[in-house]
Design a protein around this nucleic acid. Structure first.
Lengths: 233, 233
DNA sequence: AATTTTGCATGTTCTAAAGCATAATTTTAA
DNA sequence: TTAAAATTATGCTTTAGAACATGCAAAATT
């Protein structure tokens, strides 16, 4: 698909929240400065300690925001789907990035210089509110994550991770199979455990008929049970 | 001290960042809606699941933002000192609070209805930027905390907590003693460990002449070592 | 001042989860 | 297609840190 048609498809098919907030002059300015990039699976979009320059908008594919920790252990902080924006926080905080973003699968991503975004916010109240709201929602999410990842037991953390995958990417046509294909290691990095324990606990869930596992295809059999384990267990 | 003089003292002595962004009409509107509250030690200012109504401004004392977790275990998320603002995130996210705020010591706190704040942001670009920046900085901090609290070992987490206390509240006149008087339980809640382990590890640090401990008075003897422990071991 | 309550310190025991090893399976690349 | 590499699956061992218990000290409360 050509760049232009990709963009037009996105804009026409599934109007991003942000787009509707703009007047035609603003839209023109975006189109003039917007660039489309294709990232391969596992390719890094930006890395921790880089200086933030662009607002990124995921158009196609899946992106993970993560932080490399101790002993090469990675923590996945957030997942993005089309059409979501990322990469702006560090610029607003006048800081280098504290986390990295990479493509989970082959992805198409648009970039817009943060300078342009900044100027637009200066002249568009609704756009300012859009970012205030996004940042506020994310901050609440991260604060909650601090407690769940440190206090919940392994089963609870895995259940929560699976629910996050449901909420973020949904199901295949069968209404059961998770619409994301990820390695056990990534499941582990999402739920603060080792790969071994992710495998072990997925097996346990399968044994208990809460899910079924066929390679990387995960079917959710008993979502209610999953939510229960996430809350208590 | 009277309400009026407390307020004037705060405004004249140590101009809050926010105040300088306002014109005289805005300042008058604040003064008309601003209310002063006194909280006793450990008194709750707002609680998780409450609906956010006010912007709070700490004028005197110390406030902790925390989240109650599993088995009554509390995680302290952020600490506030005069003059800092808190309690606005949930309102911006259109959510109930996900954390609670309480006074660490007898504290004076001002309140301003979020409705007023909202209207002021609508008409004051700089104020919008103030909150965008604050939220962005906090989000970076929380994302970082997710990794350090889950991945660092006990000694590293305690060292980091002590550094946080230094950075937040500083030292007494001797330039050594932490300017905060907190129970071991709170030290534990700050660094994701049990009270027993906070006690044990503080003792270990004292043994190693990194700090000295006299009841709740903690003197930092070797800050460099502390930062080293926080980073690695 | 006496009594109750709360907090600190330290030793001991127990366990969830990490670490390690090995084999089987799947994926990728040549 | 085949070889190499990476990933998944399981069993066994180790350990960091939680949980529990007890004694002592220091505040509150009466």
């Amino acid at each position: 698909m050509s760049i232009k048609s990709t963009l037009e498809k996105v804009i026409s098919e599934d109007l991003a929240e942000i787009w509707s907030l703009l007047n035609s002059e603003e839209k023109r300015r975006i189109l003039d400065n917007f660039e489309i990039h294709n990232f391969k699976k596992n390719q890094i979009i930006y890395a921790e300690k880089d200086d933030p320059v662009y607002l990124w908008c995921l158009l196609k594919g899946k992106v993970k925001l993560y932080k490399d920790g101790i002993g090469g252990r990675q923590q996945i902080l957030r997942l993005y789907r089309p059409i979501q924006y990322f990469g702006y926080r560090a610029y607003f905080a006048h800081e280098p990035y504290v986390s990295s973003a990479s493509a989970f699968e082959p992805s198409t991503v648009g970039s817009l210089p943060m300078e342009v975004v900044k100027n637009m916010i200066d002249n568009n109240r609704d756009l300012a509110w859009f970012f205030i709201r996004e940042l506020s929602k994310n901050l609440g999410g991260s604060d909650t994550k601090i407690v769940t990842l440190t206090q919940k037991h392994i089963r609870g953390r895995l259940a929560e991770a699976l629910i996050l995958l449901i909420d973020n990417y949904g199901f295949e046509e069968d209404g059961k199979t998770l619409k994301i294909y990820m390695a056990r290691e990534d499941v582990a990095n999402l739920s603060n455990m080792t790969t071994s324990n992710a495998i072990r606990t997925l097996s346990a869930f399968a044994q208990e008929r809460i899910i079924t596992v066929d390679g990387r295809r995960i079917k959710i059999v008993d979502e209610a049970k999953l939510r229960q384990i996430s809350k208590f267990g």
